[in-house]
Design a protein around this nucleic acid. Sequence first.
DNA 1: AGTGTCAAAGCGCTCG
DNA 2: CGAGCGCTTTGACACT
Length: 217
Amino acid sequence: MAVLPSSSSNLELTISVPGFASSPVLLPLSSVKELDINQVPLEEDWMASNMEDEEEGSNGDPPRKKLRLTKEQSRLLEESFRQNHTLNPKESLAMQLKLRPRQVEVWFQNRRARSKLKQTEMECEYLKRWFGSLTEQNRRLQREVEELRAMKVGPPTVISPHSCEPLPASTLSMCPRCERVTSTADKPPSAAAAAAAAATLSPKVPPTQSRQPSAAC
DNA sequence: AGTGTCAAAGCGCTCG
DNA sequence: CGAGCGCTTTGACACT
C-alpha cells in the first residue's frame, strides 16, 4: 500500500480492484471524533487503571475494563501505523506509549482489520458503480442493435479482395474511424487485437469512456 | 433499550 | 514448536 502524507484525522486507504492502479483515498477516522468527545484522563489516573488491568487473569472471571487510548497515544499509534502496518519492535513503542506490548500488538491487529474493512467497502462501492455503468452501456448497445435491425437495409455485397468471392454479411462491420466496411473473415483477430479487447473489458479506464475506434483499418 | 465503536480475547493457520 | 497474524466474538462504553 502506498504511503502518502496525511493528517492524523484521516484514514489513508487504497483501493485495489484487479486491473486498476491503486489510488489512495482519504477517509475520516471516526476514532478521533470519539477521542475528542472523551475527556482525556490524567496520565497518572489512567495509568493506574491500566496497571490494575495488568494484574487480572490470575483467578477466574476478572472484570474486563474498557481501555480508552489518549489522543496522544492514538496519534503516535497512527503515525507508527502509517510508517509500517506491521509492528516492530513492539516493546519500544509500548514503552513510549506507556502501554503493555500486548496492547500495542492488539491495537495494530485491530487497526489492520479496520483498514481492510474500509478497503473492502470501497471496493464493493466501486464494483457497484462499475456494474451500473456496464448495465447502462449494455442497454445502449441493445438499443443500437434494435435500431439497426429496424432499418432493414439489405446487406451490401462485398467482394473479398483476397478470395475474390462475396463475403457473408455476418462477417462485415463498419470501422467507426474511416467508416469503411471491413470483414472479420478476411482478417482473423490478432493477439494484439485480443489484448486490446481484453483491455476494453478490464476496468483500467472508466468503462463508459473505454470505447475507442477499432484499429481494423 | 437499541445500536455503533473499539479494545481485548480466543482460536486456528502459516511460516521459519 | 513458537511467534505472528487473521478472523471472529465478547464486553465496555458512548450515543440516540
